Amino acid sequence: MSKMRVGLIGIGGIAQSRHIPAFLQLEELVSIVAVHDIDHERAKEVATKFGILKIFETYQEMFNEVDAIVICTPNKFHAEIAIAALKAGIHVLCEKPMALTAFDCKAMSEAAKQSGKVLSIAYHYRFMKEVQAAKKVMLAGEIGNPLVVRVQAMRRRKVPGWGVFTNKELQGGGSLIDYGCHLLDLSLWLLGDCEPIEIIGSTYNVLSKTEGQVNQWGKFDPSAFDVDDHVTGYIKFSNGASMLLETSWSNNIKEDVIENVSISGDKGGLEVFPFSLNYAKHGMLINSQATWMPGEEKPDLPQAKNFVNACLGLEELVVKPEEAARVSKIMEAIYESSRIGSSVKFKIEGIVG
């Protein structure tokens, strides 16, 4: 069987640190054959570094040379490139978030259905072994019916001072759409079939607009900072469950980083990071932790393997387009709720006010 030919569109940090190394480990199945970036000189440097033979001036020129692409561009261009590739008969792995709007997500999903090609979104937290373990527990019904979910994705003074992360036009937002989306996605995946019915959210960027602040991740211009650095949200689901979400790039917390998803059910509860199950049994309160769990320490390789095997028809996608679209739908509603100062309610067909 010939190798699947993969091209990368956008070859910044995430492409070089995560996707290229992962696909290179699958050399029996995959060959990285091409790259494209608007910075042509950087594309040449990366191609030379990783031994990639072809560099294209436009991403469209790449389509005749590849079977699949990985999109690592700013968020604004995800939908445009993905739809063009799918219509050209190319499989797509797109960096998160899926797109800036629920409308664009729907268009991407429809393009995938019409083409019959694979579309997956790189929510790599799902491939962490703790998350995989938590999913097994949830599928087994060990904590019963989920009632309350607490999601925290918090960093202390770590605004990304490189690239376009603080550019609202290109990225659509800040800490929520860049960082909080990962923990939001994995929590929704653990919950399974749940639909939001009402969302209220608040976004802040006061701290990052303050002059003379401390930031651990490079420099940025506070006067031009126009994205969120701190977001809170409360989500009610159709099955009666609720979620409390907090995410931040830049917060005055004691810890350097707080990352966790905690789910309380009617029979028990679980914490994802570190993984534990919490019960009340035999007249006692019991917390149990795994002494060993299967899985890779890093999620990069499992994510690449799943995408490749799905393209080859060997396994089911772990991150499906409709699931990634739900994440974007909720984030869009949080931003809208903060803008209008009230909750956003849903019907099946979309936002109703």
Score class of each variant (00 low, 15 high):
1 M>F: 05
4 M>S: 01
12 G>A: 13
20 I>P: 03
21 P>G: 00
21 P>M: 01
26 L>N: 11
29 L>W: 12
31 S>Q: 14
39 D>C: 14
40 H>K: 15
44 K>N: 06
45 E>S: 10
50 F>C: 04
54 K>S: 14
54 K>D: 14
55 I>N: 14
56 F>W: 09
58 T>K: 13
64 N>S: 13
69 I>C: 05
74 P>D: 08
76 K>F: 07
76 K>C: 01
79 A>W: 08
79 A>K: 09
83 I>G: 08
84 A>C: 02
88 A>F: 00
90 I>A: 07
91 H>D: 02
96 K>P: 01
99 A>K: 07
110 E>T: 12
118 V>H: 12
119 L>V: 12
122 A>D: 09
126 R>C: 07
127 F>G: 01
140 A>R: 10
141 G>S: 06
145 N>D: 08
148 V>I: 10
149 V>I: 15
161 G>E: 03
165 F>A: 05
166 T>Y: 05
170 L>R: 04
170 L>T: 02
173 G>I: 00
177 I>V: 15
177 I>W: 01
185 D>G: 10
188 L>T: 12
189 W>I: 01
196 P>L: 02
200 I>G: 07
208 S>T: 15
215 N>E: 09
216 Q>Y: 15
222 P>M: 02
228 D>E: 15
233 G>C: 05
248 S>I: 00
249 W>F: 01
254 K>H: 08
254 K>D: 08
257 V>A: 12
259 E>M: 10
262 S>K: 11
264 S>N: 12
266 D>P: 09
275 F>Q: 07
278 N>L: 08
278 N>G: 05
280 A>D: 04
281 K>W: 05
284 M>W: 01
284 M>V: 03
288 S>L: 11
295 G>M: 11
297 E>F: 14
297 E>K: 15
306 N>E: 00
310 A>S: 13
312 L>E: 04
313 G>Y: 02
318 V>W: 02
321 P>H: 03
321 P>G: 00
321 P>M: 01
322 E>N: 02
323 E>C: 00
325 A>R: 04
333 A>V: 00
335 Y>I: 03
339 R>H: 14
339 R>Y: 06
340 I>S: 10
345 K>A: 10
347 K>R: 13
349 E>P: 00
